[in-house]
């Protein structure tokens, strides 16, 4: 034992190897191999007559996705929904995080953190079905809005945006709150001291410093919405999103290669988003 200990304490590479082998192997297996398998599957095809997978490589699936207007429409719709969800979540999260981080007493802050975290304990399905019931004809939203001449938007994209914005909100609030706590009070005071009104302080000091946190939050809401297929089935009416298409092709259509090709789309979008964000330098402080 002692000999091993002394060997390890004098050989840094041995320590590193021991420490990192297991997690690295896991990462390689889960991420790299899985991604490679996905890419490979996308290059296979299905014999339309027998329904069997042919493992000869072809770009037919990818070509189909790139050229068929159906896929372009669904991709744009999915990006649109993800963007709407992200914008709504950031707009709601900013004042909540500001209140939690800079205004609330320590006790109120703890309570708010609990309040933000609690919905994460409830099942995703329960929350989606809760929104289905809220938005149903004669449901709570109808009942509240009817006296004002409004009503439930019904099942459709609006309902999907509402449901997704609700479900992912904690994932946006928490990083922004953490970022807000890291903004020193003295910076806010210094801005006021130099003559900036509260709104100018928020615009010129707090928001720029929060940008990395906002982006971190937006990565969550954007990517999670991008891959969602459950709530669109529950409250989305007849609308399709990329997730549904993958689901249908794996199941009903029995076309695993096409499903894999569709699944590449959100991955490529996310890579593009991350690359764009990286260029702004916002990830440096993450």
């Amino acid at each position: 034992m002692r000999r091993i200990g002394s060997f390890l304490s004098t050989h840094a590479w041995a320590r590193l190897t021991l420490l990192l082998t297991a997690p690295l192997a896991w990462l390689v297996l889960v991420y790299v191999v899985a991604l490679a398998a996905l890419l490979l599957t996308a290059l296979w095809s299905v014999d339309s007559f027998t329904g069997e997978i042919s493992k000869s490589l072809t770009f037919a699936n990818i070509k189909e996705i790139a050229t068929e207007s159906l896929y372009r429409t669904v991709t744009l719709r999915t990006i649109g929904v993800a963007l709407m969800v992200t914008v709504i979540d950031v707009v709601i999260a900013l004042p909540i995080a500001f209140y939690m981080g800079k205004v609330a007493s320590p006790r109120a802050r703890r309570l708010l953190v609990v309040a933000v975290l609690t919905p994460l304990w409830a099942s995703y399905l329960v929350k989606a079905f809760a929104w289905r019931s809220l938005l149903s004809e004669g449901g709570l939203v109808d009942w509240v809005l009817n006296p004002f001449g409004g009503g439930s938007p019904g099942y459709g994209l609006t309902a999907v945006v509402l449901t997704q914005a609700y479900i992912w909100l904690p994932y946006v609030i928490l990083p922004i709150f953490a970022g807000m706590e890291r903004v020193p009070d003295s910076l806010v005071e210094a801005a006021g001291d130099l003559g900036a009104s509260t709104s100018t302080t928020l615009r010129t000091v707090v928001l720029p410093l929060l940008l990395p946190s906002v982006i971190a939050g937006s990565i969550f809401s954007f990517s999670l919405t991008l891959g969602d297929y459950i709530s669109v089935n529950i409250v989305g009416g007849a609308n399709q999103m990329l997730g549904n298409l993958v689901f249908t092709n794996v199941g009903a259509a029995n076309n695993l290669p096409l499903a894999a090709a569709i699944a590449l789309v959100p991955i490529i979008i996310m890579l593009g988003y991350l690359a764009a964000v990286r260029r702004t330098g916002a990830l440096d402080n993450l």
């Binding site: 003295s186 005071e189 210094a190 006021g192 001291d193 003559g195 900036a196 009104s197 509260t198």
Partner: peptide, 11 residues
């Protein structure tokens, strides 16, 4: 408020 006062602070 601080921004209405003609004083400045070195923190």
């Amino acid at each position: 408020a601080p921004f209405e006062r003609d004083v400045n602070t070195v923190f």
